[in-house]
Design a protein around this nucleic acid. Structure first.
Lengths: 252, 252
DNA sequence: AGAGAAAGTATCAGTCGTACACAAATGCTG
DNA sequence: CAGCATTTGTGTACGACTGATACTTTCTCT
């Protein structure tokens, strides 16, 4: 039966199953070329810079020609996301905790290089080959544990969601920041501006927070990157502590 | 000096500091009315349904009139986000863990009622009065612990990020789902479609996952909501376990 | 009363996504 | 080798959106 191996068109394009109908006019354009061009534009101009006219003219075609290869702009975004994610690194760690940590940092590195990836609307569950490969890598890291599938998936998507959230937040704040201002400076300005609005009677804890040294005194020679790494690690290790509790619980 | 209590216009609008210049033609429109209308449209048509023409005509004005009260569409979104978030519930829990759990569920309930909130691009650090109030509530819950500020903020934003991510994911999947299909059915279909693409040689763990009972056999009389709640709790308790480790560590 | 200031309006340009009908380029069939 | 079905890329068009600029309207204060 053909209905058994029916795969919807978007999935076929994601997995590179070319039609090669060998009939009619041969295509001078294919999905991968279109996606590569779109990714290049996103790298340069951000996700909002990706428009069908721009992608098409960057290839010397008209915008409508793209519709022969991608079903819609949303589908193009999905294809871009999987292509830009790329394959996961090889991680063969002796124990799960170090492995997941490396997985998370690798994931973060990819997103930091292409912050627009964190803004692609997810149109469905992970279904591209690269997304699946990253998932495989995480599952392999946890294969030694006795966690059940629900916990493995839960831990993985928790970490992955944290990575996305964290990178997006930093990149959006960086976008909204005046040029030439470092992260430390921006945080201090933010604290000062809000400190006037936060009434200590209504918001006692928050007022104490703003009065604390958290925003005022970062050792001035610390690079922004180190601060960001520390913030990121704080949350990540918190999650890993939580996973450790479950791992220990399932292996008495 | 006036420069000391200078507050930028977007912040002034967020905090409801009206100008009341008492000169010239009196306004028949104000920020709150505009924001309320925009929120109503978002509730009905989603975030993409919010356009300046639609908001304006729903009030009987022209689109350009909105620019007298809102700096840009992005600013309108920020204002909508804070208005729609609303004030946090009163949570006076005897211990932090139950308190944070209730905080997370309350936050989730708000976002579930207005899924478009999870898609508003965050333009900066939390700065609206309601956002600050939610932050205050979380800090108050943790005030009994000996966590330092960095850990409190880290735990709070981790939980909040998890809530957002989780609700957004579910609502986006629900949007992409064919009508009349429940969550359990959709997950089963997803598993079947991908199972054919996932080569067990390249993706052994993932193949085992798809072959597992995770997607195939949810007890058929379980309502979708219960499944979603269980998924949500799984991740949340994982995070809380992680926080508990830190709380214990800081109080020997 | 009238000057000055602010609110709301009319008009407009520049984009974007995409539906639809068409032209061009090829392999297959006779 | 002719012509036909088939597939690819194009031209044109429409509706919708953001936001600029310059205008009219409607107030208060002098």
């Amino acid at each position: 039966m053909t209905s058994d191996d029916f795969v919807p068109a978007p999935l076929r394009r994601l997995w590179g199953m070319s039609e090669s109908s060998r009939l009619g006019r041969p295509p001078s354009l294919d999905v991968n070329v279109v996606v590569a061009a779109a990714v290049k534009i996103a790298d340069r101009d951000g996700l909002d810079g990706v428009t069908l006219p721009k992608v098409a003219t960057s290839l010397g075609f008209t915008s409508m020609s793209l519709y022969r290869h991608v079903g819609s702009k949303d589908e193009l975004l999905t294809l871009m996301a999987d292509a830009a994610l790329g394959p996961p690194p090889n991680i063969d760690a002796p124990e799960w905790r170090g492995g997941l940590r490396r997985w998370a940092f690798a994931h973060r590195a990819v997103l930091q290089r292409r912050p627009w990836l964190t803004r692609v609307p997810v149109a469905g569950p992970p279904s591209g080959p690269h997304q699946i490969a990253w998932m495989e890598a995480a599952l392999a890291i946890m294969s030694d544990t006795l966690l059940d599938w629900a916990h493995k998936i839960g831990a993985m998507s928790l970490i992955s969601g944290y990575v996305v959230q964290s990178v997006r937040q930093h990149s959006e704040l960086a976008d909204g920041r005046a040029e030439g201002q470092g992260q430390a400076d921006a945080e201090r300005d933010y604290g000062r501006a809000l400190a006037r609005l936060v009434n200590p009677d209504r918001f006692p804890e928050t007022a104490r927070l703003f009065a604390s040294t958290l925003f005022e005194a970062p050792p001035s020679d610390t690079p922004d990157e180190a601060i960001a790494d520390a913030d990121f690690s704080l949350g990540l290790e918190l999650i890993l502590d939580g996973v450790a509790v479950r791992v220990a619980r399932s292996d008495p």
